[in-house]
Amino acid sequence: MDLVFALAINGLIWGLIIALIALGLSIIFGLLDIINLAHGDFFMVGTVLAWFIVQSTDNFWLAFILVPIIGLLLGAVIQKLVIVPIKGAAALSIVATFGLSIILQETVRATFGPAPKRLLPPVEGTIPLFGIDYELYRLVAAVISIICLAAFFLFLHKAKLGTWMRAVRHDPETALALGIPVQRIYTITFAIGFGMAALGGVVAAPITTVDFRAGVDILPFCFIAVIIGGLGNLQGTAAAAVLLAFMEGVITAFADPVVARIASLLFMSAVLLVRPQGIFAGATS
């Protein structure tokens, strides 16, 4: 029974980190109708930038502040260069972001190198958790993720920019008529999506590894969370990421972890069949 609790808590914590990344994917789809296959690589760029900053300054918290800012800037540039030319063509967005994914991976491979690296956690040590020695940093990462998620939803609902983003998503033509700078909102939204994935990268890097293919592995889980939560449904996406990781954790205690992933895929298939709009449809963003 101890193992069930330990793995359930671990799933919950991992889900919170994934929620940060998946939210970026969801806002980009929700506002821009972009199926962003490069989103995992935005996460990977975040891990690599964090590694460089920590190597140079020996300060993880500086990376925690700087990486999302760099992510925002990179996101704004990429939106102008890659997304604007294909605006309104969802099918083209798949091709364009797939190409972007390859460019980002190969650029990192050519500069950072193909060998994986380790980023030391800023908080070391373990605590006993239901029979296993659990890494303390994971609990810190969970707290950071909760704070970041709360800050994001607060921004979305209380800040003027957040309100504009929701308005543009709801009805871009009316928003434009009311004087909201729609094009700028598109750019800001994409930049925030990149920034959140990069932030997820900084938080996850000490747990996983830093390497040019890190995003390839993380992307499918994010897509599953977005689909189950409802495409473009931000609260739904965050809830689905946490729910899925928690569910996988519990199943893993009884069965092979591969079975747990199969269960997630079956769950996604069932949602697509029964509630293609997502299980949290009706919740507003």
């Binding site: 793995l7 671990n10 890494e135 994971r138 592995d217 499918p220 747990a260």
Partner: peptide, 8 residues
């Protein structure tokens, strides 16, 4: 092969 969290 695509695992990132090995705790489970």
């Amino acid at each position: 092969l695509d695992s990132r969290d090995l705790v489970p």
